[in-house]
Design a protein around this nucleic acid. Sequence first.
DNA 1: TCCATATTTCCATTATTGTTGAAGTATTGA
DNA 2: TCAATACTTCAACAATAATGGAAATATGGA
Lengths: 118, 118
Amino acid sequence: MLLAAELLAALGHETRLAIFRLLVEAGPQGRYPNELSEALGLPPTTLSFHLAHLNRVGLIRRHKEGRYLRYAAAYETMDELLAFLTQNCCGGVTCLSGAATGPSEKRPPTTILAPQGT
Amino acid sequence: MLLAAELLAALGHETRLAIFRLLVEAGPQGRYPNELSEALGLPPTTLSFHLAHLNRVGLIRRHKEGRYLRYAAAYETMDELLAFLTQNCCGGVTCLSGAATGPSEKRPPTTILAPQGT
DNA sequence: TCCATATTTCCATTATTGTTGAAGTATTGA
DNA sequence: TCAATACTTCAACAATAATGGAAATATGGA
């Protein structure tokens, strides 16, 4: 089960947001920690800490590949988060002003929860 | 200037997310702190702390109204945040699967920044 | 003017997160 | 089997954020 605030908090950190964006950009095959570590100039322990966090909340996924590891963005989770935000945190009209959004019934309700009164 | 991670972090807290959702739901005229305080069962100081935070990052706005105060959601900011997320943190195809999104050129580029290499 | 009310600011305390070196684990190649 | 590599987990510390009582501020009504 996903918690909206948890996902938002995970992305609400400069370093983790940067990591996540690199992974999104990298596509489904993802990236190796050493690449990320170098790209962002982070010591491996710090990187590992943030990767673990993102992984724990479900925004990225870890694939073991023999000796190596690979992390990739979990697009569906981000998709859910966006659905949650457009459904719950927008005026409705205002949001997605560029896109032709139909009534929200077009899309199955998100499984992301926000405890205080759905 | 808005910072994506700052906005995400602001919403990445159960209480603030709940406050924000109440304000979104309340529409443009917003709500008084005492209503929020009661609705969420928060002591006024705690509420005030979170309102100040949301206000500082630009997600809500404060209107002074004689003796009272009123807080209202800043829809445009949320709109920008969603634009940033769909433009930078999605596979592109995956996100907004329900909505008929055209090419992102339809919309002026967001003014939200994510420091690490935009 | 004085009081009640609404809310904030101040402050101290507690709780949560972030950082990073050192040690540990797993895998592969020699 | 041993050494090298690629990470992670551990542990200690530093930094930041959250909580809520007490005091301060502002407004309007009696």
